[in-house]
Design a protein around this nucleic acid. Structure first.
Lengths: 187, 187
DNA sequence: ACGATGTTTCAGAATCTTCTGAAATCAGGA
DNA sequence: TCCTGATTTCAGAAGATTCTGAAACATCGT
């Protein structure tokens, strides 16, 4: 028989569970998502020990996870006067939250992807033809051209996503909402 | 000494590797991403056996993976007359590709998330107070209100993402590119 | 300098995900 | 109907990721 807790506690638990499930779909470790959810929904600064106790995770996990969340700008370190240990507080402005996430993924995934796509082109001049026989086959050249076009097209799409990410990162919430309205009108 | 292969083959291999790495970051199984990359970059229909041979994966993997890619609309089944076995061909229009991916994630992650966030609200009326003592504490009510505001704010952000996804899914490539220009101007 | 308190690290354990391969299933063709 | 070749399924193996816990490391106050 596990204690039901207050309605608020239960609502928090539901949210933490939901957020960790979402995180899983996004490749974010369960504990990381749980810790962020907890800090966000509680809304006030907690110590590492509080987090450990609340979620039942190990000290190591809590430490690693908090460090990462701080690194990602989703959580801020807070010092309390008269307290020696550190406290952690989740960013409460959901627009900043979105921006932090978008900026992170753009920087870590999109930008390098565009870079790497360059290296996936096939070089038409570097024909193999080890025998030295002429006519390196027009069809091979055509294949390489088609290949490069595909890479190019992909790069454009990724570039577009990058641009959207850039705008999200740049503006504030109000601007973004407005932009979406425009987007709707353009369709 | 492994054979170097033609420049085209090598460029393809680079792309397949890149795409599978990207997939990993997005929570897509390595094999799935590899198969899609292969079909996309080769540009023509292949049989399951071709895929197996080309990537060195098991029959089971190839089957499961192709089924999934077809389900996601990233790959189409192709029947050739006089051939009994099926062939598979990747969608070559990169805009359709983007739309398929966005539609998938919107349907499977964003929409349910919005739904689930509703259930994370705390009900102010359902105060615990098992002793029946009056004054269910104004501070508890305030906490619940704050909780609900946080949930609400999150819902708005997720709703915005949903809206963007909806527009991407709806329009064509040209429209989208235009919209991003507008977005840039609005910032 | 030392002890007390709080934090980080990391090797191995636990867990979860993905892949394999062979057997079951299915779909024509004779 | 039976045979043949293609496809699907799924239990267990292989592999990758994440978590734990205890030891090492800081930092501060005395």
């Amino acid at each position: 028989m596990h204690t039901p807790g207050t309605p608020l506690t239960e609502a928090r638990a539901r949210f933490i569970l939901l957020w960790s499930q979402m995180g899983a779909e996004w490749g974010i470790p369960r504990t990381t998502a749980q810790v962020h959810a907890l800090l966000f929904i509680v809304g006030e600064a907690m110590s590492a020990d509080d987090v450990m106790a609340e979620l039942g995770v190990s000290r190591g996990s809590a430490s690693m996870t908090l460090r990462q969340l701080v690194e990602w700008n989703l959580v801020h370190r807070v010092h309390r006067r008269g307290e020696r240990r550190e406290f952690f507080e989740a960013e409460q402005d959901v627009w900043k939250l979105l921006q932090a996430i978008v900026a992170l993924r753009k920087r870590r995934e999109i930008d390098p992807l565009i870079q790497a796509l360059e290296a996936c082109r096939g070089d038409v001049d570097a024909t193999p033809d080890p025998g030295g026989r002429a006519a390196p086959s027009a069809s091979i050249a055509a294949s390489i051209a088609a290949h490069n076009e595909r890479i190019e097209a992909l790069k454009q799409v990724v570039g577009l996503i990058d641009a959207i990410g850039g705008h999200v990162t740049a503006g504030d919430g109000e601007t973004l909402r407005l932009a979406v309205q425009l987007l709707g009108r353009a369709s």
